[in-house]
Structures are given as structure tokens and as C-alpha cells.
Design a protein around this nucleic acid. Structure first.
Length: 733
DNA sequence: CACCGAAATATTTTT
DNA sequence: TATTTCGGTG
């Protein structure tokens, strides 16, 4: 592609950013202003106009999805640059450097990546070993302490004071945790970045090398960088030929995991960008949506400031809906989706967004009831499921039997008579002799160090591992996975019966095998995987980096359900927000100084996902874990949306109770209005409700448990109520 | 040591 | 409500 073509079909601001002179530049790109476009075109510009080799261009993003997107879009512009080159997430890039220089990084040859769950297990056993009460010093809190320190680049020795209770215990455990990870060659997410940073700091030659290699550095979502990511960028990119950071301070929503918006300001003084570009023309949303979003975000104080505009016309006003409770809200969303599809729309045009995963459960029920196809994103990710992690642990042991955390995970999974006591003893023996659990087990078997029953079980387990390794020799990756699953007996253990969960688990395990063959065919990572052994290692890394299983992207037309966080970077013709109530959104855990502004930014992100239609719902009553209904107050953010941009305040959508919908999945509710009588209540009757006060019955519908009436209340407008639940007092019939 | 039912506990967001 | 942990029994 020619240099001129690259600038084609870009607006003036975008053109300037793409063709900016070499040196440092900052692009402030509002939501929907073509940020990814600018980044990919900039890469193409560097490659063609500036004649930079593709291998000299490092582009980092936060999510795998964004990295993948960037790869395909760059490939479309300048052709495939080989397997990925240097386009990846912060974590995958750091990991790649660590793998290439494990010696300089002081890591073992086969270091393994551990996730949050593994971290917790390690912390728990450490706490117990150290006689620190797990009831008082909560391992979860310890974990968040450790992660926080790492995000700020702190080892235990120079940990920063956080003024938390039990801080000295946290610190002691942190020290032990560092030692344990080092000894077993384990790397957690924070460690990847920290270790990489330290490695470059300690090895001048490597730093020089990579400064030369990465002549051009581009960063996406810069507002989400934390302290070490920033330092890392500064270290390798401060004097590079070109450096471009793209970000939007209004979309900084990861403060809770260490992201510092202040890095945007820091960049101005540290990198002294030769050019700053502002992208303010929004191509995504209609005017109503954009104006409302602008209005909401303007309530934040700490902003760099910008105002998005569009020439797409007013579009539809935002629909604000109020429902009596979460079930009615969910039903309203389901029926809306159904209507939308029946009028020629596609389900996949619709995204239902919520603040936390917990809100998806009610939606699922209603969607099932109304037979609306849906797909939930996020939640328990594929590679985090217990059965998958078990299978991966076996695969890990095939690669490296000395990996203690994998050994400990599956030595008794499926149960084979090696209980906690035996494992404890095994640990002691391993510690005494300074060997891995695997070696310790061998010794126990040979020297008969434990009760005969345990020794037998251990011997069987070791034989199992040996068989797996033998079966895996020279085998294809998917064959290895298949053997691990089969020989271990994980299927029978996790999926013994015909229940839905069992079937799901069985499918998951099968899917793991599929993912393996997929991975070999179409490698996602950047490292070459010549031999089956290196393919195995690469796959384990891939799995540990939490990349989504390929199946998620496939599938038919369906509504998408996800958290606002995971919707970042995406856009949908129709966005439905649910549970927009104070305490949920903004979340009660976050209503404090900095927290509220971040919640508002999150709300802003949610609103700006919508292209044509934005619907925002809240319920009057919401049940929290099964019992104890609490009255909900609409989110304070709703008051920040101008009246002019909204429509049908207090729209009352409840039409049909879920129970009915469930028993008649295909039928649509018919709104029979008439004078029929139900339990002594007929239309025209005057009734009183405990909460809504006096009203007139407009219509009745259904019978028995499904009997419902529509009541026009004096102060609350018209509502559908379930007779058995509403407890109406008839004043006048 | 494994299994089962009871009790406790949890809901903020994720690379 | 849904899931995990605990404690008692076999």
C-alpha cells in the first residue's frame, strides 16, 4: 500500500496523528473516534513512508482481543508481517522477553505462569506453614497486598506502606511468597512485568539491544498503564525513533488494579511529545447518546478535557426504563430483544451490559424463558475452570514433573487416597532434601517412608505420570492433551453423570483437545513451536495468559451479555444497561473519593458503546442473594443525563412473570384488556398497594399463580402486578 | 481417607 | 440463591 493511500479516508485530525513526524507523540482519542484506526494506519505509515522494518515496531495493548484485532488490521494494510511480530499485550511481550532471556531474568528453564487462583493456593499454604491464622489474615487480602506492591514495582524488601491492618503479616508472607515462587520457578501476572523491568535494568547490554530493536513503540489504552508498565515503556521507548501513546483519560477504568491516569500527565513531562493530537469526531454514536455521555462525564473534575461531536444526526433519545424488580427488568429486556428480532433486527446487534457478573443470572433465566438466544462473555473463563486447570496441570507435569504447584494440584485429583496429611508429609520430605515433590515422591516410594497404603497410591500416581510421558513422546499437542485427560480419569471424576454441569465439563475437556489442535494449526502466540515439546510449552503459556478459547467467537445470532469492563473497546447498534442503581452502579464498594469518578468513567464507557439505541434500566426492588429484598434508588448518574436526550422516563415494561414465560417458552404475552374478573378484582376497581398507594385497575390477565392486573397508580403511573404477590386491598369494586 | 449433608459465605471490575 | 468449606460418619 502506498503512503498516500494510508491517509485516504481519514479525517484531518487522524491524518495528522498518522503522519506525525518521528519522535514522541500523544493521541487523545475519545470513544469511537477511530483510535484503533489511527494506530494501525500509523504502523502502516511507519512501515511504508518512514521505511521502518516491521520487526522494529512494537505495539502493545492490554487485552488479547485488542492485540488480535490490531494484528489482523495491520495485516490488511501492509500484508502479514509473519507470526505476530511484536504486536501483543504487555504481558505477552514481557513473557516473550523473559522466555528469551530466562538466564538473565534469573528464571528456571521451564518457569510456569500462575494465575490468581494458584496464587491464592500458595499463599494459603504459606500462611499455614508460618502459623499465621488464615481466619484473621485473609489470603485474599494478602494476595491483593502482594499484587499491589508488584504493580508499583515493589519487592518485599522495599514494600511501600499501605496502612492496612495485618500489614506486617502481609509483608512476611510476601517475602515467603517471593522465595517460594523463585524456588519453584513460578511467575505471576505482576511478576512478568516486574521481572522484565528488573532484567532490563540490570542488564545494560539487553537494554541496549532492545532499545535498538524497538525503534518504534506504540501503546494502546495508555490511560490504563500502571507504574511498572509506565517505567517499562520509559526504559525502552524514551529515546526511540518514534513513540506514540494513544489514550483517553475519560475511559480509565482500571484504577483498582493499579492503573494510574496520572501517567497521561507524566508522559507530557517525561516524554515531551513533539505533537499532541486530539480526536474528537465520534463516528459511532448518534447525537442524543453522545450529548448525554458528554454531560455525564463533565461531572468529573480531574480531566484533560475534550468534547466529542458527531455529524450523524440526533438519532433516538435514550430510553430510561424502570421496573418493579429485577425479574421484571430481565423480562423487559428479553421481550425487547424478541421484539427487536421479530421486527427484522439481529440478536447480535444487542449487547446487555451490567456492572457485575452477578446481574447476569436473572437475565439468563428470562432469556431462557422467552427463548431468546444469548451468549455470556467473561465470567468463569475457559482456562480457569477447575477441570481444565487440572488437565493443564497434568500437561504441565508431562513437560516438567518438578513443577510443584501442578503436582500438588493433581496428586489427589481424581482422588486416589493421597489426602492432606500425606501431602503435608511429602512437603516436609521435599523441604528436608531440597527436592521437588515429584522427586520426594520417588524417594518415598523407594525408601517406603510413609504408610504402605500411601506408598502404594503414590507409586500408582508416579506410574500414571510415567505412562503419560511415554504416551506423549513425540506426539502431537492435541494427542498429549487427549492422553492426559484419558489416562488421568479426569472425565469420570469431573463429569460422572448426565447432569447439565457434567455434560458441560465433558465438553470443556473435549474442547481443550480441540483448542490444542487449533493452536498448532494457527498459532496465536509469537514464539515458534518447532518441536512438540516447545508446542506444549507455548500452549501452556498461551493458556496461562488467559486467552479465550476459540469457540467463544463462533456460534449463531445471539444477544451478548457482558460486564461494562469487558465491553470496553467494543461497539453495538443497541446497548441495554441493566441494574443502574445506586450501590450497584456506582458500586457501593467504590463510592469514595477517587472511586466515584472511576465509576462515572465506567458509566461513560458503557454509554458510548451504543451506536443507535441506548436503553438504561433500573429496578425499584432488587433481591440480594435470594432473600432480603432491598429498595433500590436509581443511579445518581441518571440525574446527570439531560432530560432532552431521554425518552419515556418510568417506562413500565413488566408484561409477564418469568414463571409463565418459562412454562410457555414460545408464546408471546397477549395483553388482554377487558372486564374479566380475577379473585374479586376487576378492571375499574379502586385498590390500595402498600408501596404505591391508591390506584385504578385497568386490565387483568392470566389466572391462578399467573394472575396479573394492570393498575394505574396516582403517584407512580401504571404498573403490572402479580396478584398473589402484590397483596392489593380492594377499596371499591 | 472419602463421602455426605450442613453451615457459612459471597458479589466489583481482569491481564 | 449458588457455591464453597466444614464436620461428622463410615
Amino acid at each position: 500500500m502506498h503512503a498516500d493511500d494510508i491517509l485516504d479516508r481519514l479525517n484531518d485530525e487522524q491524518k495528522q496523528a498518522v503522519s506525525a513526524p518521528l519522535g514522541n507523540s500523544l493521541v487523545l482519542a475519545g470513544a469511537g473516534t477511530g483510535k484503533t484506526r489511527v494506530l494501525t494506519h500509523r504502523i502502516a505509515w511507519l512501515a511504508t513512508h518512514e521505511r521502518m522494518p516491521m520487526g522494529s515496531i512494537l505495539a502493545v495493548t492490554f487485552t488479547n482481543k485488542a492485540a488480535g484485532e490490531m494484528r489482523t488490521r495491520v495485516a490488511a494494510l501492509v500484508g502479514d508481517a509473519g507470526p505476530g511480530r511484536w504486536v501483543g499485550t504487555f504481558h505477552s511481550t514481557a513473557l516473550r522477553l523473559l522466555r528469551s532471556h530466562r538466564h538473565e531474568a534469573r528464571l528456571g528453564d521451564e518457569f510456569a505462569i500462575i494465575d490468581a487462583d494458584d496464587q491464592l493456593r500458595i499463599i494459603r499454604t504459606l500462611s499455614i506453614d508460618m502459623n499465621i491464622s488464615v481466619d484473621q489474615v485473609n489470603p485474599r487480602n494478602t494476595r491483593s497486598y502482594i499484587n499491589k506492591q508488584k504493580e508499583q514495582g515493589r519487592r518485599h524488601a522495599n514494600a511501600v506502606r499501605l496502612n492496612q491492618p495485618y500489614e506486617s503479616e502481609y509483608k512476611r508472607i510476601y517475602k515467603a511468597y517471593e522465595a517460594r515462587c523463585q524456588k519453584e520457578s513460578l511467575v505471576d501476572f505482576g511478576e512478568m512485568l516486574l521481572r522484565c523491568l528488573e532484567m532490563l535494568r540490570e542488564h545494560e547490554d539487553l537494554l541496549r539491544l532492545y532499545r535498538r530493536v524497538f525503534g518504534n513503540v506504540l501503546v494502546d489504552e495508555f490511560q490504563d498503564t500502571n507504574a511498572i508498565q509506565y517505567d517499562w515503556l520509559k526504559l525502552i521507548a524514551k529515546d526511540s525513533a518514534s513513540f506514540m501513546a494513544v489514550g483517553d483519560d475519560d475511559q480509565s477504568i482500571y484504577g483498582w488494579r493499579g492503573a494510574e491516569v496520572a501517567n497521561m500527565n507524566r508522559l507530557l513531562s517525561d516524554f515531551k511529545p513533539v505533537s499532541v493530537h486530539r480526536l474528537e469526531q465520534n463516528y459511532r454514536s448518534s447525537e442524543h447518546i453522545l450529548q448525554a455521555a458528554n454531560s455525564v462525564i463533565s461531572h468529573n473534575n480531574s480531566r484533560l478535557g475534550k468534547n466529542l461531536w458527531t455529524d450523524q444526526g440526533a438519532g433516538q433519545p435514550i430510553v430510561l426504563t424502570r421496573s418493579v424488580n429485577e425479574h421484571s427488568e430481565a423480562d423487559a429486556v428479553a421481550t425487547f430483544a424478541k421484539d427487536y428480532a421479530m421486527n427484522g433486527g439481529k440478536y447480535e446487534d444487542i449487547a446487555v451490559l451490567y456492572r457485575s457478573h452477578a446481574l447476569s443470572r436473572v437475565l439468563e433465566r428470562s432469556f431462557n424463558g422467552y427463548a431468546v438466544p444469548y451468549r455470556i462473555y467473561g465470567g468463569l473463563r475457559f482456562f480457569e475452570r477447575a477441570e481444565i486447570k487440572d488437565a493443564l496441570a497434568y500437561m504441565r507435569l508431562v513437560a516438567t514433573p518438578d513443577t510443584d504447584f501442578a503436582f500438588a494440584r493433581v496428586v489427589n485429583t481424581p482422588t486416589r487416597g493421597i489426602g492432606s496429611k500425606s501431602i503435608e508429609r511429602l512437603r516436609e520430605i521435599a523441604l528436608e532434601r531440597g527436592v521437588s515433590l515429584f522427586r520426594a515422591s520417588e524417594a518415598v516410594v523407594v525408601e517406603r517412608l510413609l504408610p504402605a497404603r500411601t506408598v502404594n497410591s503414590l507409586e500408582k500416581f508416579l506410574r500414571l505420570l510415567a505412562n503419560m510421558r511415554k504416551a506423549s513422546e513425540g506426539a502431537e499437542l492435541s494427542e498429549i492433551a487427549d492422553q492426559c485427560i484419558r489416562l488421568s480419569g479426569l472425565v469420570d471424576f469431573h463429569a460422572p453423570d448426565k447432569t447439565e454441569t457434567s455434560i458441560g465439563r465433558r465438553e470443556n475437556l473435549q474442547e481443550l483437545v480441540n483448542a490444542c489442535s487449533q493452536f498448532v494449526e494457527d498459532p496465536v502466540g509469537d514464539e515458534e513451536q518447532g518441536t512438540p515439546a516447545s508446542a506444549l510449552r507455548a500452549f501452556l503459556d498461551h493458556a496461562s495468559l488467559g486467552e479465550e478459547a476459540p469457540q467463544m467467537e463462533a456460534g449463531g445470532d445471539a444477544v451478548r451479555l457482558m460486564t461494562v469492563h469487558s465491553a470496553k473497546g467494543l461497539e453495538f447498534p443497541v446497548v441495554q444497561l441493566v441494574g443502574v442503581e445506586d450501590g450497584i452502579f456506582p458500586n457501593s464498594m467504590a463510592i469514595n473519593e477517587g472511586g466515584l469518578e472511576e465509576e462515572r468513567r465506567l458509566f461513560y464507557v458503557a454509554m458510548t458503546r451504543a451506536m443507535k439505541e441506548l436503553r438504561i434500566g433500573h429496578a425499584e426492588v432488587r433481591t440480594r442473594y435470594g432473600q432480603g429484598q432491598s429498595i433500590s434508588v436509581p443511579s445518581r448518574f441518571l440525574a446527570e443525563i439531560p432530560e432532552d436526550n431521554t425518552d419515556r422516563m418510568f417506562f413500565e415494561p413488566a408484561r409477564m412473570p418469568s414463571a409463565y414465560a418459562r412454562s410457555h417458552p414460545s408464546s408471546r404475552p397477549s395483553l388482554a384488556k377487558g372486564g374479566d374478573e380475577l379473585d374479586g378484582v376487576r378492571s375499574g376497581a379502586v385498590v390500595r398497594h402498600a408501596r404505591f398507594g391508591e390506584g385504578i385497575v385497568l386490565a387483568t390477565e392470566g389466572s391462578g399463580d399467573n394472575a396479573r392486573v394492570q393498575v394505574e397508580f396516582k403517584r407512580f403511573g401504571s404498573k403490572w402486578l402479580v396478584l398473589g404477590y402484590a397483596n392489593l386491598q380492594v377499596l371499591e369494586s
